[in-house]
Amino acid sequence: MILSPFAQRTISALVLGPLLLWSIFYLQGDEFFVLLMLLLVPAAWEWGRLSGQTLILPRIVYTTILIVLFYFGSFIPLGVLLSIALIWWVSALFWLRYFPERTKWVFSRNMGHVAGIIVLIPAWHALGEIHQYGVEFLLSLLLLVWSADTGAYLVGRKFGNRKLAPNVSPKKSVEGLLGGVGFALITAIIAYSYLVKIDMGLPLFLLIAVGVVIFSVVGDLVESAYKRNAGIKDSGSLIPGHGGMLDRVDSLTAAAPIFLFLLTVVGGL
């Protein structure tokens, strides 16, 4: 029996959801670091495909390099990694605006190899650092990104008319973005009230939530640009009904370092 895409997505969510929650709540310190390293393997493997690597051996080498860099990244000051990520994602706003006419070089094969390092290594370390500060912070980040994605889909499907980035992802709309922001703000109010214990006012936390949502969309669009340049629809087929690992975490690659950076700057951590 062949399951429909919706059935596959549902089963995958029911299986992986509890595993993810268990990992977040019960793995600590080095255990969570090892989990992140394991999750980096498929992400790095898929990024090799996005950057145009079609042969197995080069992709194995590339994946190995990213794992090694992730490990040694632990010895680099976190501020350096976050600064690199911030520069990249702010620049991505410009690159996406002028894709592909002026910025196709950013999404070329050669640059793609470097981009995988810049995108994945800071994001993975940010996730680990957020988890160390408290499970509630990582859970809040995930809820913000998931609620924004849900809101963007529902509102965009019903009311979407103005294209957000037609040359990158024709289905995304301005209305969908606003819907995602709205859903995320509701989630942020709930998280602020009942989940996180943080030394800042609600308005400032809501501003951080808006920033996270905007850059989560940028993360999604950057991966879409690389997929478009590589001529592929999904980054992989690891998760039935969902595509590859990168298809599930593309928003987090930008949202995680931005969330950690903003919380650190305003003194929330």
Score class of each variant (00 low, 15 high):
M1L: 11
I2C: 01
I2V: 13
P5Y: 10
A7Y: 08
Q8T: 01
R9K: 11
T10D: 00
I11D: 02
L16K: 03
L16W: 07
P18R: 02
P18K: 07
L19P: 03
L20G: 15
L20Y: 03
Y26V: 09
Q28F: 04
Q28Y: 08
Q28D: 14
G29F: 03
G29I: 08
G29E: 12
F33D: 12
V34E: 02
L36N: 13
L40C: 07
W45H: 07
E46A: 01
G48T: 01
L50H: 07
L50M: 06
S51R: 02
S51C: 15
S51Y: 01
I56V: 14
L57N: 00
T63E: 02
L66Y: 04
F70A: 13
Y71C: 03
Y71H: 12
F75T: 12
I76V: 15
P77Q: 05
V80E: 09
L81N: 08
I84N: 07
I87Y: 14
S91G: 14
L93W: 09
F94Y: 15
W95F: 15
L96F: 10
F99T: 00
P100I: 01
R102N: 12
R102M: 09
K104C: 00
S108K: 03
R109A: 13
G112M: 05
H113D: 00
V114T: 12
A115G: 02
G116E: 02
I121W: 12
A123Q: 09
H125A: 12
A126R: 08
E129C: 00
E129T: 13
H131T: 04
H131L: 06
Y133V: 04
V135E: 12
E136L: 03
L138W: 06
L138M: 11
L138N: 03
L138F: 14
L139V: 15
L139I: 15
L141E: 06
L142M: 14
L143D: 00
L143C: 08
L144M: 13
W146R: 00
W146A: 14
S147W: 00
S147L: 13
A148I: 03
T150L: 12
T150C: 01
Y153A: 02
Y153G: 03
Y153L: 10
Y153C: 02
L154T: 03
V155Y: 04
R157F: 01
K158R: 13
N161L: 14
K163Q: 12
L164A: 08
L164Q: 10
A165Q: 03
N167K: 11
N167I: 01
S169Q: 10
P170F: 11
P170D: 10
K172Q: 08
S173M: 10
V174D: 05
E175H: 06
L178Q: 02
A184H: 06
A188Y: 05
I189V: 15
A191E: 08
V196I: 15
V196S: 11
I198S: 10
D199F: 11
G201Y: 06
L202P: 09
L202V: 12
L204G: 01
L204Y: 10
I208V: 15
A209Q: 09
G211M: 04
V212K: 04
I214F: 11
F215R: 04
S216Y: 07
G219C: 09
L221I: 12
N229V: 00
G231W: 02
I232K: 00
K233V: 06
S235Q: 04
G236S: 01
S237T: 11
I239R: 04
H242R: 08
M245I: 10
L246A: 07
A256S: 14
I258L: 14
L260T: 11
L260D: 10
L262K: 08
L262G: 07
G267D: 13
